[in-house]
Computed example of a mutant assay.
Amino acid sequence: MKYFRIPVVGLLGATLLLTGIQAASAHEAPGGAQAPLRTLADRADLRIGTAVDMAALADDTTYRRTTGREFNSVTAENVMKWEVVEPARGTYDWSGADALVRFARDRGQVVRGHTLVWHSQLPGWLTSGVADGSIDAAELRGILRKHVTTEVKRYRGQIQQWDVVNEVFEEDGSLRDSIWLQKLGLSYIADAFRWAHAADPKAKLFLNDYNVEGINAKSTAYYDLAKRLRAEGVPVQGFGAQGHLAIQYGFPGDVAANLDRFAKLGMQTAFTEVDVRMILPVDEEKPATQAAYFRGLLDACLGTRSCKSFTVWGFTDKYSWVPGVFEGQGAATLMDEGFGVKPAWGAVREGLAAGR
């Protein structure tokens, strides 16, 4: 997950005008007399979402309260992934996913389903069976069809958007050499969308990946794929740019133009997993740069009518995935470990208030 350096003077200059107000409230709890983020997002005709850590939701009152108050969309961080929902073949565990759907329903939130087909976080019985040859290509296709159909049907009418196929291209635009491509060929992508659509015709079905926020070889590969599949009648309805950025690599170029070209195909667009990490320790300048990056993605979304949702991948550093994956990096979310808001929170708030 790397970006080349691209000048961001204009973006930073515009956003730094906000930081005086943001800094003054950096350690105040959100909410109170202020309207929640979700209220501002409603006015802007946008879903503002967060990935949800279900253990934190159960055990941390502040996390639970903030999740319900500030966001009108939620995504399962892990509990809808295949290794969780079918840990043993034919044995399902829907408890975490069901709990999230109930939580969202009770709070008037929509749910993004994440993710149906991915090369990672697959159940061990599946990967070992493919590896030792006990699951051949024909059986694997049937297993994939059953998985997609079973999960989507279970939540039919309860999921607004599904990340159907996740992270299928490499940085140079070549197809990822996953077990799906190796055993089933390229047709697995179209098949997955058709199966998901048959299981829930009303859910919007997305391609999803990282490092595709701007125009580059990888996002162009997705554009070409989406254009071809849609011409063939495959129900590819959305393009999700994850938005895992890092301030040391510069802001991606041509974000608005990238969203616009997918919109011209008749597709919805979304930012699906936004966070902005930095090399630790935090200093006085890094939070302002981070705020500019969050605002840059949000403004691109708000400026594109097809962009219907903006989801952060967790909202507090207390539960962020970043330090466990990127050594020496972190502080990637809108709030610190004590739930104090950062300049990035203020930047998102200001952007939502400005609207479309």
Rank of each mutant, 00 (worst) to 15 (best):
G133E: 15
V117Y: 05
K202D: 12
Q160S: 09
I179E: 11
A138E: 15
G133C: 13
A88V: 14
N78A: 12
Q160C: 00
Q161M: 03
T115C: 13
H147L: 07
E170C: 09
I159P: 02
S134N: 15
A97H: 02
E167F: 07
S187R: 14
Y155E: 03
Y92V: 06
R105P: 00
I189T: 08
G133Q: 14
L175A: 10
D106R: 12
V164F: 03
V79K: 02
R112T: 10
G185H: 10
I159L: 05
V110A: 10
E171M: 12
E151D: 01
D106E: 15
W94G: 00
D106A: 15
T150Y: 05
G90R: 12
R89P: 11
W94P: 01
R154N: 06
A104I: 05
I143K: 08
G173V: 12
A137M: 09
Q160Y: 11
V165F: 05
F193P: 03
T115M: 04
A196Y: 01
P87K: 14
L144W: 01
V164I: 07
D106F: 00
D98I: 00
V79H: 08
A137G: 07
S174R: 15
Q158R: 13
K146L: 07
I159A: 03
R102S: 13
R107V: 08
R112M: 06
I135K: 11
H119A: 14
D132Q: 13
R156M: 01
Y188K: 07
G113F: 03
L181V: 10
W94M: 00
L100N: 03
G113D: 04
R89C: 13
G108Q: 06
W118L: 08
S128E: 15
V79T: 12
P201M: 03
G124V: 15
P201N: 03
L181A: 09
T91E: 15
E83H: 14
K183S: 15
W82P: 07
R145N: 06
S178Q: 09
V110E: 08
S95W: 00
W94Q: 00
F169N: 07
E139P: 01
L100P: 03
R145H: 10
I159D: 02
H197E: 04
G113W: 04
I135C: 13
Q121T: 08
R156V: 01
W82D: 07
E83S: 15
R102E: 12
A199D: 02
H197I: 01
M80H: 05
E139Y: 01
L122W: 03
A76M: 13
D163H: 11
R107C: 07
